[in-house]
Structures are given as structure tokens and as C-alpha cells.
């Protein structure tokens, strides 16, 4: 799978929130920071595979709903235990009322 793919309506993702999408059977998490900046990561927490879309964004951090590990939504960096491994991030953009995700050469 490669190139930009429209994955959600831009209006479906509010500021300081997360939205889960599924592409080709894989889960991804879309984030909108308080200043409106978009970003995207793998859909599951790197700790114990909880769906990050069930968590909540506070400022520029997503908190996992299961064990409260947190990640920086701009970089994917793990901010506190039990999150220790960074999230894989994907390019995201907003265009023509849609959120687009570039999965690159994701198998």
C-alpha cells in the first residue's frame, strides 16, 4: 500500500482529540493537536496493544486507555511508563475536507 489515502472526514476529528481508522485491515490513530496540527500513528499502544483511539489527547500527548502510558502525538515518543517504545508515525494532511494518510511502503 502506498501514496495518500483519504481516511476520514476532517470534521470528524476535533482539536485535542484522536480518531481511529482502519485501512486494509490495519488500525491507525489520527490526532489533532490543540493548534489544529494533524498527525497519525499506528493504531495500537506499543505496550500491550490497546486501541489508542479509545484513549484521550491532552495537550500534545495521547494517553492509552488501559494503563495510562502516554505518547507525544507529534513524534510518537513514549513519554511515561508503561509506554517505553515509540509509536510508528505516518504522514497525515488535511485537504478538500478530508484527512489523508500516507502509509508509504507499509506492507
Amino acid at each position: 500500500m502506498s501514496g495518500w489515502i483519504a481516511v476520514a472526514a476532517a470534521d470528524d476529528l476535533e482539536a485535542e482529540d484522536v480518531l481511529g481508522v482502519s485501512v486494509g485491515g490495519r488500525d491507525y490513530a489520527l490526532y489533532r493537536a490543540p493548534d489544529g496540527t494533524l498527525s497519525a500513528s499506528q493504531g495500537f499502544c506499543s505496550h500491550e496493544a490497546a486501541l489508542l483511539a479509545d484513549g484521550f489527547v491532552v495537550g500534545t500527548a495521547i494517553e492509552c486507555p488501559r494503563h495510562q502510558g502516554r505518547f507525544d502525538i507529534r513524534t510518537g515518543a513514549a513519554l511515561n511508563a508503561p509506554a517505553c517504545v515509540a509509536l510508528r508515525m505516518y504522514p497525515a494532511k488535511e485537504e478538500a475536507g478530508q484527512i489523508w494518510l500516507n502509509l508509504g511502503d507499509t506492507p
Partner: peptide, 13 residues
């Protein structure tokens, strides 16, 4: 604290 943080995460899982 470190051990118990992980122990408790497993308890919740």
C-alpha cells in the same frame, strides 16, 4: 515504585 507500576499494569491486563 518501578516494579509496582509494571506489576499493577499486569494486574489490570
Amino acid at each position: 515504585g518501578h516494579r509496582w507500576r509494571w506489576s499493577h499494569a499486569r494486574h489490570h491486563t
